[in-house]
Structures are given as structure tokens and as C-alpha cells.
Amino acid sequence: MYREIMMRTELALLLGLACMGIAPVSFGQAKGQEPLPLADSGLRLTAEQIKQNEIKALDGSPEAANKLANHYQGWTNDVEKAMYWYQIAAENGSTEAMWNYYEVSTVATFPDWVRRGRFWLRKAADLGDKHAIDALRDESGQKSGASK
């Protein structure tokens, strides 16, 4: 069971990184382990930057929350923390975070993430996000095509 959860978490990480156009870190890299050279060093935040961005994000900055989410997903390989900050960024109005939350949730093993991911997909589409609109259109086309 643990192995399955880890494999799904790694897949979620790779999907999220692909959405952001970032080279993925290696499969099998442990949470908290120093990233391999493929990780985008532009995502790395210092302890002081993390602290500053946390304050800004909790005060309403979607940019700061996205920086934290990208750091945790793309640098430290901590999908749970990344999802927390994607949630904050989405609540702060970032359609990019709404989309990223949805993308990671599509392979999540946590039903709450999946359900919330669908919510953020619809919200991003309502706010005009092209990726979300296309995903919903494709989904509705597949459903109508499948029922014929």
C-alpha cells in the first residue's frame, strides 16, 4: 500500500511539473532529499524567503503562495505542502494554482483532493482559464461521445 501511495505521489509530482514546464526530479527521490540536478533551481527558496512568502501568502498574495507551492513541489518533492499552498493561492484568486491543484489531484489517492480539484477546475474555467475551459470541454465531449 505504501509503495502504491508513493508511486501515485511521484506521478502527481511529475504531472504538476509538466504543467509548469519544469524538468522533473528523479523517481525514487525521497521527500526532503537534496534535489538532483534536473530540478529547476529557480524554484528553490531560502528559509527566509519561505518565511516571507508564507506571511505574504496568508495575507492574500497569490504570487507568494504559488512560489511556495512551486518550491515544495518542484524542489523539495513535498506534494502535500505544495497542495496546501496551491489551495491558498487558489483561494487568493490564482487560476494558475486552481489548474495546478486540479492537475495534481487527477492522480491523487486522497478523495478530498480529487473532489476539491474538480471544484478548482470549474472555478478556473468560470474565471476564463483556457486550460480549464478546454479540459471541461474535452471532458463533456468524451461523456457525450461515450453515451452514443
Rank of each mutant, 00 (worst) to 15 (best):
E4F: 13
M7K: 12
T9N: 12
L15V: 09
G21L: 06
V25I: 13
V25A: 05
V25P: 00
G28I: 07
A30Q: 14
A30L: 10
K31P: 00
Q33E: 15
P37H: 09
L38V: 08
A39H: 02
D40W: 01
D40H: 02
L43Y: 02
A47Y: 10
A47L: 12
A47D: 15
E48Y: 00
K56D: 14
D59G: 12
P62K: 10
A65P: 14
K67D: 12
A69Q: 04
N70Q: 14
H71A: 03
H71N: 15
T76F: 01
V79H: 07
M83C: 09
Y84H: 15
I88R: 14
A89H: 03
A90Q: 08
E91P: 01
E91S: 09
G93C: 04
T95Q: 06
T95N: 07
W99Q: 04
N100V: 01
Y101N: 07
Y101H: 13
E103P: 00
E103S: 15
V104M: 10
S105K: 00
S105C: 05
S105Q: 01
S105H: 00
T106N: 05
V107N: 08
V107G: 08
A108D: 04
A108C: 10
F110S: 11
W113G: 00
R116M: 10
G117M: 01
L121W: 04
A125S: 08
K130V: 14
L136E: 08
R137G: 04
E139T: 13
G141K: 10
G145F: 11
S147H: 10
S147P: 02
